[in-house]
Design a protein around this nucleic acid. Structure first.
Lengths: 215, 215
DNA sequence: AGCGTAATTCAACGCTCGTTGAAACGCAAA
DNA sequence: TTTGCGTTTCAACGAGCGTTGAATTACGCT
């Protein structure tokens, strides 16, 4: 009985545990034994289900990448549907890129905040940032860049790429919820205050895109 | 003779090797033996000079943090000197925050790009981001926030903190030189093109600050 | 020249790591 | 009930880890 419900559930428990631990401590700091202890399963099961520690890591990344990409595609679909003739505004496009992540966080905070923290680490790692992020997110990002190109027809492509790069950095740090802003603001701001992010991040980034394009 | 020139040079060689390896692979992936092999010194010397692997890591971070803070303070001094009566513009202040890093990269690319990549990883790690970044960079950041508060007197403090947070994310990813933008742009942009960054990053960020403050 | 201390080397410790092969279990089909 | 296969457990492997104490070297001072 391949893929029995029982074994599927075990796989998910392992992925959950691995996700939380990798997100907090990084790939190399986490032990397969730690993961399996938290998952409540035997060490060898990790290798039976996933092959190796590295393959387990990739599986963790892949699992939610699909959901994340789907929800962002849908958000951009929706924005484009509202503009059959003209182009959406820059801020609308950026919001379609960022707001779905806030929705995911609000729907299931625990799971997604671990995942986003993990992506933040991967994105900022020279070792993995180039390859892994490209692998999982490139098609989606290119679609957003296309939409932005239409919204900013006079903007040189290089400016678009750099603007997106700045967006990517701001986004990943913000969603990593490192607690840095809590410390810095002496508690006036909270990493976990999603409403605060939704009000500010798309506006901030859209202004940057537009200013750069207009220079 | 304590602190002999010879041993100082050894210490620096160890720090250089540790910096490069930590930056590329992260704290936990790197072994002390790797570091000391690259430094051309015996394993035990790491412990003689620095105490433990973790202390060595802190020493790596601390070494350049002082230089980095000093050069940024000086840049802000200079900007404020040019405005004895009125406040500098937001873009001038942001440029005083970012451009010194570009100067450092241009003066000695190899050393500083490793360091910045390391800071990017620390900044985006939930484990260390909150504490270590606060420890090394808080006084400087608070001074910049004060300057920005004067340049944007009607801006609510929360908006300033969030804007700085977005700046921090964009900055650390950009200086981490992960190669992500190279892949995404099919070579049209290069992570290492400092002129491209200097032209765009301060402008992009300043626009975000101003737009958020004006809302 | 020879002493004293700082700097460096050497060899080893106990431990934990990722990984694996063989044995045991559970359950649907026969 | 027995068979067969997917799943899980158990025990262990060799390798490499961070770290240390003792032995050795290098060298400025008297």
């Amino acid at each position: 009985m391949p893929n029995s419900p029982k074994s599927q559930e075990t796989r998910q428990r392992i992925l959950d545990a691995a996700e939380a631990l990798f997100a907090r401590d990084g790939f190399a700091s986490v032990t397969v034994r730690q993961i399996m202890k938290q998952a409540g399963a035997d060490v060898a099961l990790a290798y039976y289900h996933f092959g190796s520690k590295r393959d387990l890591f990739d599986s963790v990344l892949l699992r939610r990448a699909e959901t994340m990409n789907a929800i962002r595609h849908a958000a951009l679909d929706e924005v484009e549907r509202r503009h059959p003739d003209d182009s959406p505004t820059v801020e609308e496009i950026i919001a379609a890129f960022t707001n779905p992540l806030l929705d995911l966080l609000e729907s299931d905070h625990e799971q997604w905040r671990h995942y986003f923290a993990l992506v933040a680490q991967v994105n900022n790692s020279p070792e993995w940032g180039g390859e892994l992020m490209t692998k999982y997110f490139d098609p989606l990002v290119r679609r957003f860049l296309d939409a932005l190109r239409k919204a900013l027809p006079d903007c040189p492509p290089e400016d678009l790429y750099w603007s997106y790069h700045f967006l990517s950095g701001a986004l990943t740090l913000t969603f990593a919820e490192t607690g840095r802003i809590d410390n810095l603001s002496d508690g006036a701001c909270s990493s976990r205050d999603m409403a605060a992010i939704a009000e500010r991040l798309p506006a901030f980034i859209a202004a940057g895109f537009q200013y750069l394009a207009s220079k």
